[in-house]
Design a protein around this nucleic acid. Structure first.
Lengths: 221, 221
DNA sequence: GGCTAAACGGAAATTCATTTTCCGGTACTC
DNA sequence: GAGTACCGGAAAATGAATTTCCGTTTAGCC
């Protein structure tokens, strides 16, 4: 909701602009920790603002979620480009990107809500496709390099990242896990992803329809 | 709900007994496919019976879920014992058990429902502890054998199994994934679990409180 | 075949966590 | 200091599920 200022209207007040940033920051954190199902009230609590304030800046929950998701996807594309430029080999770049994706987990690629499905906005769709395309390039490189096992594809990998358990970090209100589940599981997966791979992967690789269906079923697109 | 017949009362009608079996069979299938959050209506549809019939045999949804969960846990214990007796080494037994757990996925270990948390019944708690204890034995063997990496423990493994994506099989009503996500991801994990493990697992292993907290947060115990 | 208690089906009532609205009160900005 | 923007959070609206209820159907027994 980067709030397009209607021409002629007075610009947004400084504190309000800061609050929007605050809301997005809190939303990112909460979503990464507990998933997109958390209530707006939780986001409000974490941001230190009221629920009314969130609704003043975002027309509804979905809009907030999309905003966060789009931010994550664009950021991941940047991380990917940087990794490709800086890392010595494709495998290092690959692990760096996977680690980043795990960090934000299902915040990747889509929204959300068990409410009746709504179409994703065009910006989200665009960001999603861009990310998928970039990932595809990275995966191809790593496989040609011989470091990433050949019997997985980009969709498989995305689905793995999205299925990682949430961080469940301590939110200050007690609770939270001592162990970094996400990180541990990711590390095990990465070991398993190194070529050639001893286990025979059953069936055939995931497809784009699989990816879409998974998100639809799991999160309501 | 194996319906204790009150002494002196007439025994349960044959068709009713068959229906209970039918309900449990359908519930298992639906839960494994889509997770415990599916509505009772979905279970009813799959079983070919009406919702009223389900409620005639189970006081509420939680009771049904616990029944299914307990069944899975006991069954897993049996599979484990058999694997240990029949397989030539601990690793083979280990993978066999993991595959079985993946099959029923989160149907393991606990219930459910986003409704306000309720305590698990004593039968469930007992089955859960028995399974955890048996798994511990298996994990220890595999690690002493040198085939399972040493830096994971039983809780880590259980959490991995529970985090696997649901099967999302075709339920006849269209939908369903072409790829066997669960199986593919499990295979990658198993490769990653072989000793010694190249990646360094971050942090320390999961603990029992972590396991409990995870289930509480994720499923409402 | 006919009777009766059991069992079934599924529409309707209830629940309940969340989302979303609203408006009296605050506090930036000029 | 005035005039808006903006904020907070209680309360209303929502909506997906669960659970109840009762008219119908059917198994079990004579």
């Amino acid at each position: 909701m980067s709030e397009v200022v209607p021409s002629g209207a007075r610009p947004q007040r400084a504190d309000a602009r800061e609050n929007v940033r605050q809301i997005l920051r809190a939303a990112r954190a909460v979503f990464a920790d507990r998933g997109y199902e958390v209530s707006i009230e939780e986001v409000a609590r974490r941001s230190g603002l009221g629920m009314g304030t969130i609704y003043r800046h975002f027309p509804n929950k979905r809009a907030l979620v999309e905003e966060v998701a789009i931010g994550h996807m664009r950021e991941t594309c940047e991380v990917l480009a940087r990794a490709l430029a800086e890392e010595p080999d494709a495998w290092s770049a690959f692990t760096r990107v996977m680690r980043h994706m795990a960090e934000v987990r299902s915040s990747q690629l889509f929204p959300v809500s068990r409410r009746r499905t709504t179409e994703s906005g065009p910006a989200l769709v665009a960001a999603r496709n861009a990310l998928l395309s970039d990932l595809d390039g990275l995966v191809g490189r790593a496989q040609r390099e011989g470091s990433l096992r050949a019997d997985v594809n980009t969709y498989d990998l995305v689905l793995m990242m999205v299925s990682l358990p949430p961080r469940i970090a301590d939110d200050g209100a007690g609770g939270g896990l001592a162990a970094d589940l996400t990180g541990r599981q990711l590390s095990v997966l990465l070991d398993g992803l190194r070529a050639p791979g001893a286990e025979h992967l059953p069936g055939s690789a995931a497809t784009r329809p699989d990816l879409d269906e998974f998100f639809r079923t799991r999160f309501g697109i």
